[in-house]
């Protein structure tokens, strides 16, 4: 069965790009969210196999969202999505429990590799 993925990014453009890459490769994007709060809501509704999470977002940033999702489900798998130059935030989110990170601009193969490895079970 196709793995279910939740995409969180405040830019529609980025969500579109990631969604494109994933659906083309047999993943199911079950939901999208444009900020951290929405992400938590959608996470509870859809219980996805994986979350791809932007770091800088309005309302609630990605790092905090990771912490809260991890509280809901400590095995939640989350890949951070970061622009370059956010070194400390990447560290923070890894400490908060994110599994992996990818840097913008993406290479599709990196995204797929990370998704594949994170959803391996």
């Amino acid at each position: 069965m196709a793995k279910k993925i939740l995409i969180v990014d405040d830019a529609l453009f980025m969500r579109m790009m990631i969604k494109n890459i994933l659906t083309k490769n047999g993943y199911e994007v079950v939901a999208e969210a444009e900020n951290g709060l929405k992400a938590i809501e959608k996470y509870q509704q859809t219980n996805p196999d994986l979350v791809i999470m932007d770091i800088t977002m309005p309302e609630l940033n990605g790092i905090e969202a990771v912490r809260r999702i991890k509280k809901i489900n400590k095995d939640a798998k989350i890949i951070m999505c970061s622009a370059m130059g956010q070194r400390s935030m990447v560290f923070e989110s890894l400490q908060a429990g994110a599994r992996d990170f990818i840097l913008k601009p993406f290479q599709a193969e990196r995204v797929l590799d990370a998704v594949k490895k994170a959803t391996y079970s």
């Binding site: 830019a11 453009f13 980025m14 790009m17 993406f106 290479q107 599709a108 193969e109």
Partner: peptide, 11 residues
């Protein structure tokens, strides 16, 4: 398959 996306396209 390598796709480099950037925000410029959107802008």
């Amino acid at each position: 398959m390598t796709l480099d996306y950037d925000m410029e396209a959107y802008k």
